[in-house]
Design a binder for these strands. Structure first.
Lengths: 161, 161
DNA sequence: TATTGTTATACTCTATAACTATA
DNA sequence: TATAGTTATAGAGTATAACAATA
């Protein structure tokens, strides 16, 4: 029975009747709500497309930062990703145990590590890139190229001006 | 020393020199990256503005769904939020232990619970709403009203058409 | 048979505080 | 004094698989 049919009969629709008509109420206007749902979808898409590589979004993020900033230290890599340096320790531990990344000694500061991709790490990124692109394309499947750029830009402005 | 200064001197900039000039590389084009950062910022803003209420984003999400769909069951509430029904159990446990929400018996199905806000739950939402709005306004502080709507709309299309 | 809620388990992600080695 | 990395701890989020009760 639809809501309409129920109205005709003068009986209230039951929960089961409106299974696809849940009222999001104020949620519909909350950025936090839409961000959360988009993030969940994106995580699941990432997992589907990259499961063969056994890598998490956070781990890949570190690898991509290091790829473009060889020799960067952990604190600065954390800043690039917007997370605390303590968050990176276990991520880098895992990548290092797989010999994808290396904690090289920094020439001028014995406190810090100069992060470098290993040859295996570079190969790894080269191999997973098609899957990463397929993942991103799935996330943006309902967006035009323009909308995709706009979304990236607007999201960037949430973090900073 | 700036990069420019280093270039003039013919010496490569060290890591310390380019502390604010980290190259995001491919990350800049990845929706997943921007979503993640926006989500982290949003969580932190939520925690700042709503800490007096001792409630998590997930808990508040459930309350808002129930507010607009009194009598909804847990499985359907999960669908409204885009999460598995198992995810809601502990969230609702906490809300119920604070007497903000109630697992009422469903009239026609003894398997399911009819979720309802308690009077205290309604009061609670009324009290926290100004802080929720302040939180959302902070997240959108760099966006015009139009951009804010656009962002919500584009995020919605990531989850579904 | 299928669905609802629950539990157990496991995996993301994140941060704060305190410690050590070094600058 | 201040900074880089580490550890311990805590808490946010998520899912899958299996179970009992009920439809």
């Amino acid at each position: 029975m639809t809501d309409q049919a129920a109205a005709k009969l003068g009986t209230a629709p039951t929960d089961a009747d409106r299974i696809d008509r849940i009222d999001p109420g104020h949620l519909r206007d909350l950025l936090g709500y839409h961000l959360r749902r988009a993030e969940v979808f994106t995580f699941q898409s990432f997992a589907r497309h990259l499961k063969a590589f056994d890598i998490s979004p956070g781990q890949l993020g570190v690898m991509l930062v290091v790829e473009n900033n060889p020799g960067i230290n952990q604190t600065r890599a954390g800043k690039a990703l917007g997370v605390d340096r303590s968050t990176l320790v276990s991520i880098i531990d895992k990548l290092e145990s797989r010999a994808l990344i290396e904690r090289a000694s920094a020439p001028n500061d014995r406190r810090s590590h100069a992060l470098m991709l290993t040859d295996a790490g570079r190969d790894f990124i080269g191999q997973l890139k098609p899957s990463l692109i397929a993942h991103e394309d799935e996330v943006a499947r309902n967006l035009s190229a323009d909308e995709r750029r706009t979304l990236n830009e607007l999201l960037g402005r949430i973090v900073g001006p």
